[in-house]
Every structure is written in structure tokens, then in C-alpha cells.
Amino acid sequence: MKLDIFSWSEEKSDGFQVGKGRVQILLSGPAALYAEAQGYETLVGYAASFDFETSEALTLRVDVSDKARKIRVFRQRPNGTTTRAEGEVFTNIDRMVDESGSFAEVTQALRQFKIEQRRVLRDLQIERRQLQHERAKLRAAPVEPASAQIEPQSEGAQE
């Protein structure tokens, strides 16, 4: 077992609360450990080390038969697998954990720009095809001669 001294905390031997789940207790000497819940008390065991699981919150008490010797009680509080969010909250699904918020905003703006750029290029291609189609129609259509000649207007004539 690898010992992490910062995960162990000293408790009072006359009673302390533990939550539901795994409980690890180390004593400085062998002693009786009692557990109490909902008004019932039972003996957990007599030893210097305890490792057990509970189905509900309990109050544990260490009973030393010889009052002359002092028993120290240590309980392990392992590091949790989750932490409460502080400061920046990571909610962007495509952001890596090590990215900052401003970097993610730049990445998002760049993606929006690329989407807009693709839309504009698509619109330009559609318009180009329409112009080519109209130009092809004009080239294929026969040229009609002018049927009437324009008569020059005299300078003195008014409308």
C-alpha cells in the first residue's frame, strides 16, 4: 500500500461521523471499534486497522479498556474522482481540457467564418452557372436585323 499522509485525518476517539461507502481506520494500538446508527450500536472489531464498507452513515467510537494508554485514531479521506467547478466552467463539447476560453472562442469564430465562406462560394458558383447559361442562350439565339430605321430628328422640332 502506498501511503499518502495528506489523505489521512486524525479523529476524536469518543465519536466521529462517517458517510456511506468504504471506511478505512488506523489506530495507534489495538482497540475496540463500535459503530452506531439509528440508536443501535454494534462492535465492528478489535484491531489496530479497519477496512470495511457501510450501507449508511454511521457514528464510530473507539473504546480503550486501559484508560492509561492513549489511542490515536486516523481515518482515510481519499481524493474524490470529481471536483466542484471553480472559475471557468467547461461546457464546450469540442474544447480540450487544456484550452483556454479565449482560444475556444477564436476556434468557434474561425469555424463560423469558414461556414460563411463556403456559403458565399456556393452562392457565387450558382450565380456563375446562371450567367454562363444566359450567355449560352444569347449566343445560340439568331440575331434579328433592325426592322425600322431611326429617322433623325430635326433640331427645331419640339415635342
Rank of each mutant, 00 (worst) to 15 (best):
E155A: 06
A109L: 14
A35H: 04
L60I: 00
D66Y: 02
L3P: 07
D94Y: 11
K137T: 12
D63Q: 11
R22D: 10
D66T: 02
D98Q: 13
A35P: 02
V143G: 02
E134C: 02
A68W: 11
S28T: 13
S9R: 13
R122S: 10
Q130I: 12
T81N: 14
A37C: 11
D51F: 01
V18C: 01
Q125G: 10
L33C: 07
T54E: 03
S7W: 00
V73T: 02
R22T: 09
G19V: 09
Q117W: 00
M96A: 15
K114T: 02
G29V: 10
Q149T: 06
Y34Q: 03
L58Q: 05
I71E: 02
T54R: 07
L58F: 14
V73L: 00
Q38P: 00
S147Y: 00
I150E: 10
P30T: 08
S100Y: 13
E151L: 12
S49C: 11
S7T: 13
Q153L: 14
V44R: 05
Q130H: 13
L26M: 13
F50H: 05
L110Y: 05
E53D: 14
I150W: 04
V97L: 15
S9G: 05
E36S: 04
G87N: 06
A68G: 14
K70E: 14
P152F: 02
G21M: 03
Q108V: 09
W8D: 09
R84F: 03
E10I: 07
V97Y: 14
P152I: 03
Q24S: 05
K2I: 07
Q153D: 10
S9A: 12
Q132I: 06
A148G: 08
R128C: 01
L26A: 15
T54N: 06
M1G: 15
Q108I: 09
A104Q: 15
L58W: 09
R119V: 06
F113S: 05
R135N: 15
Q125T: 07
Q149Y: 09
D123G: 12
Q117D: 14
I25G: 01
E41Q: 13
G156S: 08
K114V: 05
R128P: 01
A136S: 15
A47C: 07
G21C: 04
R72L: 10
Q149W: 09
Q130V: 10
Q130D: 13
E56F: 03
